[in-house]
Design a protein around this nucleic acid. Structure first.
Lengths: 207, 207
DNA sequence: ATTTTAGAACAATACGTCACATTGTCAAGC
DNA sequence: GCTTGACAATGTGACGTATTGTTCTAAAAT
């Protein structure tokens, strides 16, 4: 009984927190970190300013929480995606496909992250980067492993350092997905979501 | 006589303007747009606050001038670089080499542009983008032409849409150069500045 | 005489706090 | 079991404080 009450309260708290986060996401991604006031966020989330500060001790805290929670989620998904598939090629395709899904489903976070996270709040970036870059590094390492393994098994030609290939793949997919999201009409993304892989694969896969 | 005086005055003005721009570049690239006050810039440039406002009507004006002037310069250099060289491959190599030089010689602007320009001042971005993106587009078009021409002359295989290849090349070089500038020790950039081209060229060049 | 300087003044904005109001909880009494 | 009322927890929004962009003026410098 006692416990049930408590968890109900907890649930409510979580919901409120979520509301605040999504409200702030909308505003941040539209107007940028410095052009959104806490007051504005509070109003948009339909809370009072003080309540916002009950949940997040800072504007910075709110912002980093917002970014970090999504970043963690994305990172997990991407790491998982590379486990599915027996073949190296399949793993890579899964990776690209999952990344594509993330970009499409969470446009606002993605846009915020790539447009804002790098710079909006210069000081904050440093703090975020420490955690995110670590994940990003793991992520690239895993990609590199796949490339390396493919080379060892002679399915891939040794056209470049595996880590460089990982960076290349990451960079290419990010760029094209962003391009695709921003102006889909002008320069259509290759029909196949992972068509970009061909640019790398053409030279990479053993004939 | 009269004219001489005027031009001397003009020269002095230009020099002052330059001092202000370089001072603000140093501060902006180090601390970010919003964390630098006009007062600070004035002091660092060794002028009075009012003088700064004689040259730039706004903080925004100062910032955009700073970015735009460098961007124009870079754009011109890059466009030129693609004219040198008879061969398509040579042209591409020249492009990558020039881009590398720009990144190394003007680290602070580059860092500012990539870390800050996109986001620091969300509103400003829109204004900048209109002009810069136009140039960037021309720039990609020209790259695409080179790829297309190479394909027509059967020196390149038709592994992908020329424009996509252009985007890919641009993205790859930017990413690697930034990576290289930030942490040159950890994941060394391929010795050859344009070694990155190999990732594309392996599949691209006709055997 | 024109320009630069130093700094004061002004207005706007926004972060973060705090005393107060509101809501919800829970136990005792009807 | 239902009502009630006191107490705790939580939400509220006006306010203090600080910063900063921008303008303006009087004195100093060129």
């Amino acid at each position: 009984m006692r416990k049930e009450k408590l968890t109900r309260r907890e649930k409510e708290k979580r919901r409120q927190r979520q509301d605040m986060l999504t409200a702030s996401l909308e505003l941040f991604s539209e107007k940028g970190y410095h052009n959104v006031s806490m007051q504005e966020i509070a109003e948009h989330a339909e809370f009072a300013l003080g309540t916002l500060y009950k949940f997040f001790k800072n504007k910075e805290d709110l912002y980093t929480s917002l970014i970090m929670e999504h970043a963690k989620k994305f990172h997990d998904k991407l790491m998982q995606s590379m486990d599915d598939g027996d073949d190296e090629i399949e793993k890579l395709r899964n990776y690209v496909r999952t990344k594509g899904e993330i970009f499409v489903n969470d446009v606002s976070v993605i846009r915020l992250y790539f447009a804002e996270s790098q710079g909006a709040s210069f000081n904050i970036k440093a703090g975020l980067d420490k955690e995110i870059l670590e994940d990003c590094e793991k992520h690239l390492q895993k990609l590199a492993q796949i490339f390396a393994s493919g080379m060892k098994r002679k399915r891939f030609r040794q056209i470049a350092d595996p880590y460089h290939l990982a960076v290349a793949l990451d960079s290419l997919t990010t760029t094209f997905l962003l391009l695709w999201l921003e102006k889909p009409e002008q320069h259509p993304y290759p029909e196949d979501p992972d068509g970009i892989l061909n640019i790398l694969f053409q030279g990479l896969i053993h004939p």
